[in-house]
């Protein structure tokens, strides 16, 4: 397969995943930001959303005021935000178009349809309710795209590269939430904030669509260290770091086997998975949640670069 084709497939999946994550972040933030301070609203929720999206620097070059309107405008559709939802879907479609014959008709129609639809709406003109519907629609585009890939693609390198793109982006997104919110997950906050922090934790879980899953897995009220456990170390949770790496390692192995050659990406991914595998959540807190996450994000970026160097150029 052409390196450019693999590169396009990888980034199609990454950008679709990123668009969905942004939609979830805005959705979850809009919820908590409306809460009275007594229920955990800190007044800095929209700033957190910007940090989680990795968009703060760009935002402050354009806006001074951080509020729902400015942040959603910037994250949804601002032309100067290269990672806005609109841009993510545009770039995903452009990449897909360049490799039109490497993806299936269903995948293409999902992205092309989304792109056509996006040209009809002006997200910055949407009211609250319409915005929520719009965010649901974005999530649906991602789900349909993923489902189409799962149901229609041949299981060969083309499929594996889309999965790698999606999982590396997903791991990055989950880690970013933890990085921005780590302070509310530290064990001592239980004494300080008590149940009032419930809404903070719930926001994190909503951001990765895991609020219901949490209850099924732990069958108890929301505890910050269990939230961290779910998002980092729980294999049942499809967006956890360890699940993402299970998938990454599996597909890298398939590529290695098909091509008869392994390299730097395989070593990095396996090391990260091994580390997660031999860790319990107590270790994480011992080491420092923040340090742990910072390290993970850096390793994940290193893997992305190694995949690019090894396969995509």
């Amino acid at each position: 397969m052409l390196s450019r084709t693999a590169d396009n497939l990888y980034w199609v999946a990454r950008y679709v995943e990123r668009a969905e994550f942004l939609a979830r972040t805005i959705d979850a933030t809009a919820r908590i930001a409306t809460l009275p301070a007594a229920y955990g609203g800190t007044g800095s929720e929209w700033e957190s959303a910007l940090l989680t999206a990795g968009a703060a620097d760009g935002f402050f070059r354009i806006y001074q005021d951080v509020n729902e309107k400015t942040v959603t405008d910037y994250l949804v559709s601002h032309p100067d935000n290269p990672s806005s939802i609109r841009n993510c879907l545009d770039i995903a479609r452009r990449n897909a178009r360049a490799v039109r014959t490497a993806i299936t008709g269903e995948m293409w129609e999902t992205l092309n349809g989304a792109w056509l639809e996006l040209r009809k709406v002006e997200p910055s003109a949407l009211g609250r309710e319409e915005l929520m519907r719009f965010l649901d629609w974005v999530k649906n585009v991602s789900l349909t795209f993923d489902g189409s890939a799962y149901r229609t693609m041949l299981r060969n390198d083309a499929y594996w590269f889309t999965r790698l793109g999606a999982c590396i982006e997903r791991a990055d997104n989950t880690a970013r939430i933890l990085d921005v919110k780590y302070h509310v997950l530290l064990p001592e906050t239980e004494d300080v904030g008590g149940s009032l922090d419930y809404f903070q934790w719930a926001t994190i879980l909503r951001g990765v669509s895991a609020l219901t899953s949490y209850h099924w897995v732990y069958r108890q009220s929301v505890k910050p260290w269990l939230v961290a456990d779910l998002l980092i170390l729980n294999r049942q949770m499809p967006r956890s770091l360890i699940s993402s790496y299970d998938t990454i390692v599996r597909f890298l192995d398939m590529l290695g086997e098909a091509y008869g050659k392994v390299g730097q990406p395989h070593r990095i991914a396996r090391n990260t998975l091994n580390a997660l595998d031999t860790t319990v959540i107590e270790d994480v807190f011992q080491q420092g949640l923040h340090e742990f996450i910072t390290q993970f994000i850096s390793d994940n970026n290193k893997l992305g670069k190694a995949i690019t160097d090894h396969y995509l150029t």
């Binding site: 397969m1 052409l2 590529l255 091509y259």
Partner: peptide, 11 residues
């Protein structure tokens, strides 16, 4: 490279 044409592939 050396008057031979190659394409860049994943392999």
């Amino acid at each position: 490279d050396d008057a031979i044409v190659y394409m860049r592939t994943t392999e």
